[in-house]
């Protein structure tokens, strides 16, 4: 987009840097914004606001650090600030338990539900994309963001912790709980749709 960069123009270099380091994450930021807001229109606004803010504070960004995480952080802050001004606010009750670790039983209760019928979770394959996406959107924001950043965007625990300004133990806890809740929603749907043959009662 920018053709000639002259060394005399101090802003030109930064603009090129922004285009090279920030713009490539557009799809990821859009996906994230979409999961945060749940609506394409809102997501577009969120992305525009995110990139505009990032652009304006680009001189504060240190080259070589994770631009993607930085953009996600801005995006979530913009989103949360918007939430405070009205709309829905998700409440999470689990965290006042004060546990630092995962704080979730390691054995997933859903494993016993699928034991007789579909122990390896083949039913997940039968569920259409849109249904999975809406199940993700049904999670409280803290769980949703954590699951999206980990399972969709592939961020490490430490990066998520930094981004959400919580300890790594909390990230793990949210991830565990978020995934289980999501699995529960998808499991119920799969049973309803008949993707899982209900053989649990027969002792098969």
């Amino acid at each position: 987009m920018v053709g000639n960069v002259t060394e005399l123009d101090p802003t030109a270099g930064s603009k090129v840097g922004f285009e090279q380091e920030a713009i490539p994450h557009l799809d990821a930021v859009y996906r994230f914004a979409l999961r945060l807001s749940g609506a394409p229109d809102h997501a577009e606004d969120l992305v525009q606001e995110t990139f505009l803010r990032a652009y304006k504070s680009w001189n504060q960004y240190t080259t070589g650090t994770a631009a993607k995480s930085w953009l996600f952080t801005i995006c979530r802050n913009v989103f949360l600030r918007g939430q405070e001004r009205g709309k829905r606010h998700d409440e999470i009750v689990e965290e006042n338990l004060g546990r630092d670790g995962p704080g979730v039983p390691a054995v997933n209760p859903i494993w016993s539900s699928v034991l007789g019928a579909d122990p390896e979770g083949d039913f997940f394959e039968s569920i259409v994309d849109g249904r999975i996406v809406s199940a993700i959107d049904s999670l409280p924001e803290e769980y949703r963001t954590t699951v999206v950043l980990s399972d969709i965007e592939g961020l490490p625990y430490a990066a998520i912790a930094e981004l959400m300004e919580v300890p790594v133990g909390t990230v793990k806890s949210r991830l565990f709980r978020g995934r289980r809740q999501l699995q529960g929603v998808l499991y119920d749907y799969a049973v309803e749709m008949g993707y899982i043959a209900d053989r649990s009662g027969t002792g098969a």
Partner: peptide, 8 residues
């Protein structure tokens, strides 16, 4: 489960 989330 993870594959499904990614795929979707």
């Amino acid at each position: 489960f993870r594959d499904a989330v990614t795929r979707a």
